[in-house]
Design a binder for these strands. Structure first.
Lengths: 147, 147
DNA sequence: CTTAATGCAAACTTTTTGCACATCA
DNA sequence: TGATGTGCAAAAAGTTTGCATTAAG
């Protein structure tokens, strides 16, 4: 598991320790795909070790994100969620506002333009987040049927 | 003030009433640029009418957003903020993770590509949000100085 | 008048913090 | 062993809801 090593390196580089709870939370987090809330992660972590505390999940997910292994993903209703980036190359989201379905995509021309924008303003890129909101074909059909 | 009329129309179309608190909150909101938290809006609204309640701001900002006059903007630290769309054409954000500075920009090729993505998946576009995260020139300098 | 909206306070939810104890290097 | 991390519970934020009262149409 390469991600674990990356996390250990990150911690070492920042004078922090690799502990069992951190390992458990990382494992629980990596083992689940999709957009997870803190509670989702806590639930998964407790399956591995019931002693994990909620506060530790908050503290650890922030570390995992700083280590570049996770990123925050905005959900339609404003709920805070995270997704991991392991074996999961960068991508953006197309989200259906009707049913909540999420499609992941990657568009190289957009990625290239984004780099141009960073350069134009002299920013050092640290990542980005793009969410396209729309109505999926199924929900469009449903909506037409109801009216 | 055209936005007020739009809001009135929205309310009428949805069988809701235009009230003084709603007018005050809309005015306070439109009168301030940038990314506002609920508390920011409440503070501004209280300058106009001290009797405005916080719950009403929560309830009203949701209406304003539904009416298409505001949208949620994600801040780096996860704080929920809103920005109005009056005299303020669509744009995306370039956010400094160091100092929180926000630069607004619009890139036509990205906008066009986004439409292509909606089309490709058969989605009916409802909007989007793009946040580029990076370190601004000032913070880059600061960071180099400190290490 | 009738229906909907308001302000307040209480109830929830989500996130952070303080601290005694446990753990890692 | 010394510094850091953890779990718990309490505190602090942030958000929603119930209800008596007020205001809009």
């Amino acid at each position: 598991m390469n991600e674990l090593v990356k996390f250990e390196n990150y911690l070492r580089a920042h004078g922090q320790k690799m502990t069992r709870p951190r390992r458990v939370i990382l494992e629980a987090f990596l083992g689940t795909e999709g957009h997870l809330t803190i509670d989702d992660i806590l639930r998964e972590a407790k399956k591995i070790d019931a002693g994990i505390g909620q506060a530790t999940v908050f503290r650890t997910i922030r570390l995992i994100a700083s280590a570049g292994l996770a990123r925050e993903a905005l959900q339609e209703d404003g709920a805070r969620t995270f997704e991991h980036l392991a074996d999961h190359p960068h991508h953006d989201h197309l989200l259906c506002v009707g049913c909540g379905k999420v499609i992941e995509f990657l568009n190289p021309s957009i990625e290239k333009e984004q780099q141009n924008i960073f350069a134009q303003y002299g920013f050092e890129p640290r990542g980005h987040m793009m969410e396209l909101l729309g109505l999926c074909p199924e929900c469009q059909a449903k909506e037409r049927g109801e009216h």
